[in-house]
Design a protein around this nucleic acid. Structure first.
Lengths: 257, 257
DNA sequence: AGAGTGTACCGTACATTGTACGGCTCAGGT
DNA sequence: ACCTGAGCCGTACAATGTACGGTACACTCT
């Protein structure tokens, strides 16, 4: 991430690219779609920060600078990658609403699907999301995910807040899991090996201090999950708690009505 | 982020540094504490990725490579920065538990405090947290935050899960807010200006497609908050929903007992 | 068929990064 | 007075994103 600072993506240019067809090949067969595909494959293997324009070009047997004919820069490329991976999230606009269990089942389904993408493409966590979220696939996703919450008596703002809450939880938890995996890969140490390595230092260094609750709970958690965190458990615990909370809100609304 | 790949921090070395006193100055007055302080100040201004060893050294009127006498590398430095900013989170180990409103008030207090640090030091979001979390301040923080959940009938694992849920929510929401601010700063465009700029392109490009629910809700949200997201609202909505959910769990436990 | 033109392609150059390496300098002990 | 080890730092290197300017090909028009 050095050089000319990876200039912030131009929104209008990104939009045009996002909604374009991406299919007109140049004279060497280079396509926006192909570039995005190669970039995604590379990012899946090594992460976003390890992804370089040179690597993408090499994989496509093309000069590095040729990419810039089709894509303005790395920023816009990641925007495209982002929209792309959300393309096949749902079979159709009513798939979540079709799940058994009403709105609750639908939200569980949505959470699971989002978890799956995040797990398959951990680099998503590194993409600055805020204003890019207007590609065709993202917009469709937003629509699809809101539908099961429609007609429950919630206001529009509450529908959005509820969905955001669930998605933020899934994202945060998935991020922690991805970080754990990446750390293991980078260091070549499993959680257990790592613990064994720092344990003596920690004992030496912590002597004298005492944290009664943290000590007890930390030990329990470590024994229970064989690790310092268990993302799968955090996901389901958090999700069911959140859904319990939302149920109260929804019930209070339908009671009034 | 080029060069020698910013080598992953050595856990044992980090631990020793974290728990060390950091106060023995070299012959030019250079201290680990001073380095960490300068790095934090710089990161507050420009973010973690804009922070470079050269910048830190310049601010301290010291040669770049002198830093490496005190700190093994950038990775370990960020570990130290991370632990440092969590140092003054709570006045003492029982401050959260002392808040009015029982465990609920305590968790609200904890959420607010975490939100404050995250807002003051947005670069925290970029620090890989997983295995670093064993510095003295982090450990103390964990202990302090668990206390209000002790003695409510929850198991150790449930206590940890509940706390994690709240903190994940705060972190995810704060991250979204930080991203929003950073995007605004980078582009020099307020949300409103940005919208005005892409609006024509978007209309052109979206003609033909129609997303009924997303369109309606998106418009409502935009009008209500004058923005595409409102982090403060997301924080409080999510927090109260989560606490409602946790209340059910806690009540069910005390009922059994 | 031949000429002209625009666009796809790409080689080189540059600023910026983290840090390995090896030399210099000074404080403190003998 | 001298030696030693630690603190300090100048230089070098590999890697990054991309600006710039040149080359070569697929067309269209005569």
């Amino acid at each position: 991430m050095a050089g000319r600072k990876a200039a912030a993506p131009d929104p209008a240019r990104s939009l045009a690219l996002l909604w374009g067809s991406h299919t007109k090949p140049g004279r060497s067969g280079l396509t926006v779609r192909a570039i995005v595909g190669a970039a995604i494959a590379l990012a899946d293997e090594a992460g976003l920060e390890a992804l370089s324009m040179r690597m993408v070009a090499d994989r496509l047997k093309v000069g590095t600078m040729s990419l810039y004919t089709h894509v303005p820069g790395k920023g816009e490329l990641t925007d495209l990658m982002f929209d792309q991976v959300y393309g096949d999230l749902y079979a159709d606009a009513d798939e979540p609403a079709r799940q058994p269990g009403g709105w609750r089942g639908a939200l569980e389904f949505i959470a699971r699907r989002n978890w799956d993408v995040l797990t398959a493409h951990p680099w998503i966590h590194e993409v600055p999301t805020m204003r890019t979220a207007l590609g065709p696939n993202i917009t469709r996703k937003y629509d699809t995910e809101l539908r099961p919450l429609d007609g429950l008596g919630l206001t529009d703002v509450e529908m959005d807040s509820a969905l955001t809450l669930v998605l933020t939880h899934v994202q945060g938890t998935a991020r922690a899991g991805a970080e754990q995996l990446r750390t293991q890969r980078d260091s070549g140490l499993s959680d257990e090996e790592w613990w064994r390595q720092i344990s003596p230092t920690l004992t030496t260094v912590m002597s004298g201090t005492h944290f009664p609750v943290a000590g007890r709970v930390g030990t329990s958690v470590g024994e229970h999950f064989q690790s310092v965190i268990d993302p799968a458990h955090a996901l389901s615990f958090g999700l069911s708690t959140i859904l319990d909370g939302l149920a109260q809100l929804i019930e209070s609304r339908s009671a009034v009505q």
